[in-house]
């Protein structure tokens, strides 16, 4: 099962390798990883998507909490949350296909952020699944390049019993 974890860490040299090394050293899976500073100086937030059964994810969370540079770990399974990825892709767009591509862009509320004679560069944000859907729809036009972020996630302000 796919799981999203957010990990608040001390922003010090080597902290990324402490977290990434924990995953590789213990044979845990890492699907995507996103790191950026927070508003608090010296503190960064990592968002990791991983997969594994209940017992493995429990171990991952416990092992992460044990890393001295880690301040806090949140498993989003326990919370109602929003999660988003962002993606840029360069798609073949010859004259005859442009209309259709723009329609898809519109339907998914993406943006064309760069345009040339034969190509659109499209910016898309959304859940992992939504981006997968966009990719599969645009595939037939020919995707020349793709760059995706990992997932970022945030707890919803209002939590209801799940």
């Amino acid at each position: 099962m796919r799981r999203v974890l957010s990990i608040l860490v001390e922003n010090e040299p080597g902290v990324l390798s402490r977290v990434a090394g924990l995953f590789s050293g213990r044979g845990f899976n890492i699907e995507s990883l996103n790191v950026a500073p927070t508003l608090e100086e010296g503190v960064s937030l990592m968002t990791v998507t991983t997969y594994g059964d209940e017992q493995i994810v429990e171990q991952i969370v416990k092992q992460l909490r044990k890393v001295v540079s880690v301040i806090k770990v949140v498993d989003f399974k326990d919370h109602s949350h929003v999660d988003r990825e962002m993606m840029l892709m360069k798609v073949n767009a010859e004259e005859t296909k442009r209309e259709e591509i723009l329609r898809i862009v519109d339907i998914f509320r993406c943006k064309v952020v760069d345009v040339s004679v034969n190509e659109f560069t499209i910016e898309a944000t959304g859940t992992h699944d939504k981006l997968q859907a966009i990719v599969s729809l645009l595939m037939r036009f020919g995707i020349k390049e793709i760059a995706r972020t990992g997932t970022v996630a945030m707890k919803r302000a209002m939590q209801f019993e799940q």
């Binding site: 040299p13 080597g14 390798s17 402490r18 090394g21 050293g25 001295v68 540079s69």
Partner: peptide, 13 residues
């Protein structure tokens, strides 16, 4: 520090 990361509780440079 890189080499001993997985075999120490913590390490410092």
């Amino acid at each position: 520090v890189g080499i001993t990361r997985p075999c120490t509780k913590h390490n410092y440079l």
